[in-house]
Design a protein around this nucleic acid. Structure first.
Lengths: 370, 370
DNA sequence: CTGAAAGCGCTTACAG
DNA sequence: CTGAAAGCGCTTACAG
């Protein structure tokens, strides 16, 4: 009937030491107003009893929930992109946990479902902020989150109305590297096999690609796919069957690139057409021929995203001990007025998009010197 | 100063309707004791005000936190295995969210760090149960979790002392399929390139492999690696340089298999030695030659794991609406004595390991008929 | 430096 | 069917 492992409460600590809960709380949270001796006794007993404050009780008292959320709407286009998302998650996770934050993770089937999840998390006061990604044309999420006043960071951008702070990658630089490389290896007619037209980052990349190619090469062809392998196959087939066949194919990610290589192999054109992937991964190395690819470490990217979010949620960087019992209150203050202060701050800093890192180009067999 | 988006509280609802908080709470939670008319008025206003109960307050009142945790200790061996883990996560996630549970996800660097996280989550009463994986020799986690009384499921097994319920895969069947296939295609001397000796599932697979091969083939060689590509390369090189060179290589996962293929290609032995991977993934298809592989859907596996955990935590299956405001209390009751009851139940059912699915073998170019 | 008390927002016996 | 009240376990003005 009684719990197998009754956890000690703050009151237990206080009673056993003959002090008030206030004193115990202050001692644990590193606040002034307790004698050094008392503080040490409290800390020692907390250690001995393996005390950690009840999370719900802390949260209810107005302290932050020490949790951020990450919702990911998965559909066709993310199939095969596991590598990118898990590494993004890894990076975000490492920053969050080093600052004592938990990550609530959920995948949804549609943007509408995602809105419902965000709404619920906000209403339940379950998270302090959220990470979102893959904005679509006319995406309701930025305005929705701004109206909610819930701190949020857009992983990858772009946010056309700049309602949300975003962490982006420098597609311009990536595309310049890539076009320059193809040009140097003797390619003259490029084509770009891209993702779904409704994804905003797809548009941004296409724009960057066109801009990089402008003036250097004939205006390159661009085709859209739904990021599926079959669409990639089909698109490649069409491109290589066209009148002025391209001498280099640029694929928006490695899933498409794999499909493209297969199509080229079938057509016996692997030696004549260079292939480049805008996303590097193990598969680019393993493939035969190995694929030249743009590399940007998704882990580093995830770290930047998490750091940006914590900046909105929790102020500038401060490291936090892993164990809750040792957590200092200084890093955890927040009440309802704080929340609104935070969203004001985020509103003021919308322009401060961050570029997580400079992309590089890894040259492999698929784009030989001609 | 005032919150930008003050969320309505239960008291707000009650006041505006001129009823007690009790009545409002009962109405929202689908409990008897409210007139149908009152219930409808409450529900309507809740909908209108976009009310959702404060999560911390609910949790603090003894209701479940509606959260489970997943800790993953990542080190060498998981590099390149992104696909498996993200799909596991996807599967678990889909079951959990369909039942209204949140997933708190954290990666750690070592088992010790993982223990610290589990301890803290438990003390803070932050989760109702946890998923763990990749048990090592002498792993402290099962005993630790049992002592904590925290419901837990081991993804993948095996748990030698059977302290934890596990969801496993039928390695025996997988290895029989595989050995049989290799035998039929004319292979006689197998070798197995495996993972780190300290991982228990590595041992189980090796055992299953030896058993499947026994009586059919000469006793096969087994070598360990740390799951890294370089180790895989090295191991393969050694095997193919040995006196009686194997005519088929079995790799414990696709990362090792990729390394193996590379080594064989370098040695010019790709046509003479069959290659099989015990883990299927996009890379097995993309590779040249494409790899014959054992397939078990990690998503389905993750679903089974989550279902097993919810069974311990929350009783038999019941679907829950996505929106908190409509959540019925029937599926959410639990207090401290419940928690101990739950762990008793888990203690009683340790033997009920589940096999998530039957593995199949996908035959591709890498194991041709001889 | 210390303590008694109120409050966070729910749930739930208990008494009408 | 309904309501007043206590309680979950913390934090934090406020008064000594």
């Amino acid at each position: 009937m009684s719990p197998r492992r009754p956890r000690p409460t703050l009151k237990d600590l206080a009673t056993r030491l003959g002090i008030s809960e206030t004193a115990a709380s202050f001692a644990l949270n590193g606040r002034p107003g307790v004698s050094e001796q008392t503080r040490e006794r409290v800390l020692a007993l907390a250690e001995e009893l393996q005390f950690a404050p009840n999370h719900a009780a802390r949260t209810l008292s107005g302290i932050t929930s020490m949790t951020v959320g990450f919702v990911l709407t998965r559909d066709v286009q993310e199939f095969g992109m596991e590598s990118f998302y898990l590494r993004l998650l890894t990076g975000a996770q490492s920053v969050l946990s080093s600052r004592g934050y938990g990550l609530l993770f959920q995948m949804t089937r549609s943007v509408d479902d995602e809105l419902a999840v965000l709404r619920r998390w906000n209403r339940e006061r379950r998270v302090e902020g959220v990470i979102i990604s893959d904005l679509r044309r006319g995406d309701p999420r930025p305005a929705f989150l701004r109206d909610l006043g819930l701190p949020a960071v857009l992983a990858g951008g772009p946010d056309p109305k700049r309602l949300l702070p975003a962490v982006t990658v420098d597609d311009g630089a990536a595309m310049r590297l890539l076009v320059e490389h193809l040009q140097e290896t003797g390619c003259r007619r490029l084509a770009y096999v891209s993702g779904p037209a409704e994804l905003l980052h797809v548009h941004r990349r296409i724009g960057a690609f066109r801009k990089a190619a402008a003036g250097v090469l004939a205006s390159p062809g661009v085709v859209h796919t739904d990021y599926s392998e079959s669409d990639g196959l089909e698109a490649t087939r069409r491109l290589i069957a066209s009148a002025d066949r391209p001498d280099a194919l640029v694929f928006d990610n490695e899933v498409l690139a794999v499909a493209g290589v297969r199509a080229l192999r079938t057509a016996g054109l692997l030696d004549e057409i260079s292939v480049v992937s805008c996303e590097d991964s193990a598969i680019c190395v393993a493939l035969q021929p190995s694929l030249t690819a743009v590399r940007r470490d998704p882990t580093v990217f995830g770290e930047a995203v998490a750091r940006r979010l914590l900046q909105l949620v929790d102020g500038p960087d401060r490291s936090a001990p892993a164990d809750g019992a040792e957590r200092s209150a200084g890093s955890a203050r927040s009440d309802r007025s704080d929340r609104s202060a935070r969203s004001d701050r985020s509103a003021r800093s919308v322009k401060a998009d961050i570029e997580a890192q400079q992309p590089t180009l890894v040259v492999r067999e698929s784009s030989p010197q001609r």
